[in-house]
Amino acid sequence: DEDSERELEKLRKNNASKEEIKEVLKRLGFSEDEAKKLAEKAG
């Protein structure tokens, strides 16, 4: 959803580590696997 998109955008701009991105995604309700895949894509 839009909030998670914004959250990811912010992380990308701040050069967050894949680990940080994954944690945020998991907080947003993604499964471990989904979060890992998305973090890879974002990283």
Rank of each mutant, 00 (worst) to 15 (best):
E32I: 03
K26M: 15
E32H: 02
S31H: 03
R6Y: 10
E9D: 09
K41E: 11
L8C: 08
A16S: 05
G43H: 12
E32Y: 04
L25I: 01
E20S: 05
D33Y: 08
S17T: 09
K22M: 15
K37Y: 12
G29P: 03
K26S: 05
K18Y: 14
K13E: 08
G29Q: 01
K37D: 09
E32V: 02
S31R: 02
K22Y: 15
D3K: 11
E34K: 03
E34Y: 05
R12V: 14
N14C: 15
E20V: 08
E5A: 10
N14G: 08
E9I: 07
I21E: 00
E32D: 10
D3Q: 09
R6M: 07
K37M: 09
K22W: 14
G29M: 00
N14I: 06
E5T: 10
R12N: 07
N15T: 04
A16I: 06
K18R: 10
A42Q: 09
D3V: 11
G43N: 10
K13M: 08
A39Q: 01
S31C: 15
K10F: 12
S31V: 03
E40Q: 06
R27F: 08
K10H: 09
L8V: 06
K22N: 05
L28K: 03
E19R: 04
A16V: 06
E23G: 02
S4Y: 15
E32L: 02
K36N: 14
V24F: 15
E34Q: 08
L38C: 14
R27C: 15
E2F: 14
A16P: 03
K26T: 08
K13Y: 08
K18D: 08
L11Y: 04
D3F: 13
S17D: 06
G29L: 00
L25F: 04
E32S: 03
L25A: 03
L25K: 00
R27Y: 08
D33P: 05
K18N: 08
E32W: 03
F30W: 10
A35I: 12
E34S: 03
K37E: 09
D33H: 05
D3R: 10
K36E: 15
E40S: 07
A42W: 15
N14T: 08
K41S: 13
A16H: 06
D33S: 08
K26N: 06
S4P: 13
L38Q: 05
A35S: 04
D1E: 10
K36P: 02
D1Q: 13
E5Y: 13
R27S: 13
F30Q: 00
G29Y: 00
L38M: 10
R6N: 09
E20H: 08
E20F: 08
G29N: 02
N15W: 05
D1K: 14
E7H: 08
A35R: 00
R6I: 09
E5L: 14
L28A: 03
R12E: 06
E34L: 09
S31Q: 05
A39K: 01
E7A: 11
R27D: 08
L25T: 00
I21T: 01
K22F: 15
L28Y: 05
K37R: 14
E34T: 06
E9Y: 02
N15R: 05
L11R: 00
S17M: 04
S31E: 07
R27P: 04
L25Y: 05
E34F: 07
E19T: 05
D1H: 13
L28V: 02
G43I: 11
K18I: 15
E2W: 13
A42I: 15
A42S: 10
E40R: 00
A39Y: 06
S4I: 15
A39T: 07
L38T: 02
E2Q: 11
E20C: 07
